[in-house]
Design a protein around this nucleic acid. Structure first.
Lengths: 218, 218
DNA sequence: TCATAATTAAAACAATTGATTTAAACATAT
DNA sequence: ATATGTTTAAATCAATTGTTTTAATTATGA
């Protein structure tokens, strides 16, 4: 048969790569370790040996691809704080959407995350604490600056949710949108165009909020 | 053991009820026919007898609960066209969110739909054509009226997507939001409050759009 | 070179699952 | 009431799946 891998780490990594692809496509339940091992071109026993069991492999896969996604599309930097909040919001949405929509491997984290949100397992904690919360805190600071100091915590949170919700929709619903518009979907797939729209839409909304609230509490 | 059902239709319906609950909770792959039959308190063979196989049962379950959800929360009526578009948008979002968030059985359709969107099967067609498209058309007419006749089709679609995206987020992300805010989530679970926020946020955004576009094409 | 540990291959196991089979229980009509 | 077709019960099948076992292969170090 085949020769052993040149690098002992190679087998482990090949499994993680294959697992990302297949878990992302079919979910935890829909994936068999045989599928993964076949895709990775390794023996079935390698999963038990390197990862103990399927569930642990799933955890490690999630962490592996989360790291990959955030390495390619890191959180927007603190130094960007000099920019006006409108620009920072657009940059945030762009990073957020790119991290998931990015063609190829990096998008596997987004798909894994989506499945985890819709049908949570014990791994939801990882997703929330290491991906959702950091993003949310950054967004919160942008929205807070944008809306001014006239607003309460609840309003800020709702506005953040509105922005995240829009951003996610363009990712989640790709198959639905394709069917709905018969594939004619200009502006629904390119991260730049999505970011432009979501940022503009949301800035408009929040600025009007700010004006309305200033009127409420003169 | 138990006596037979009083009504011969009872068995079939009991299976559909149980299937809705369990498919919604665990997805197609994560559900076993034994689980469903146990929950429905019927014999395993009843599934083959009444629904041919598991896949067909899943289809019928989807249709059954879709009908139930739309019976309880129908599309907003044409007669509402007399209302201003702001009010109609709020009513739309309220119906849309209630249809999914509604506690108890009716929410099963929303959960089934969410899973179908994230991990599509052959049943995605049913979801898009019978649930998504009709809703989208209604929303489109509201947004068109709201934004005025100065806008192009693409902008209208993007605004519709922003509204649907927000609405869905408050449903999809209940588990994430609960973790993120440690269960302290006022305004994130009640359909009325969600509808208030989403409608206000979106009306603000769209009206500003309308003004900006009027400036673009004088 | 040889011994020891690490890694992989191949086969097998035990449990689960979708589906079927066979016989019994039921309802309905004549 | 009896016959006929319908529905359910219980057992069984065949295939799949996660995991383990055993043996072979490779790398490493004295």
């Amino acid at each position: 048969m085949e020769k052993y891998s040149d690098n002992p780490l190679d087998t482990k990594r090949r499994i993680l790569e294959a697992a990302g692809k297949i878990f992302a496509a079919r979910g935890f339940q829909g994936t068999t370790v045989r599928d993964i091992c076949s895709e990775a071109d390794v023996n079935i026993a390698a999963v038990s040996y390197h990862f103990r069991d399927k569930k642990n492999l799933y955890f490690d896969t999630l962490k592996y691809w989360q790291a990959a996604a955030f390495q390619k599309y890191p959180h927007i930097r603190e130094t960007d704080a000099s920019l006006p909040p409108e620009d920072r919001l657009r940059a945030f949405v762009f990073q957020f959407v790119s991290r998931m929509l990015n063609d190829g491997n990096a998008s596997w984290f987004g798909k894994l995350m989506a499945k985890e949100v819709i049908e949570p397992t014990e791994a939801l904690d990882i997703v929330v604490e290491e991906a959702v919360r950091p993003s949310f805190e950054i967004l919160r600071s942008i929205v807070t600056e944008l809306i001014g100091n006239v607003s309460d915590e609840r309003t800020i949170r709702l506005c953040c949710a509105s922005i995240i919700g829009q951003s996610l929709y363009f990712f989640y619903s790709q198959p639905v949108i394709a069917k709905l518009f018969s594939g004619n979907t200009p502006g629904f797939t390119e991260p730049e165009l999505i970011a432009d729209h979501v940022a503009r839409f949301s800035v408009n909304a929040i600025k009007a909020f700010a004006i309305q609230m200033k009127g409420d509490t003169p």
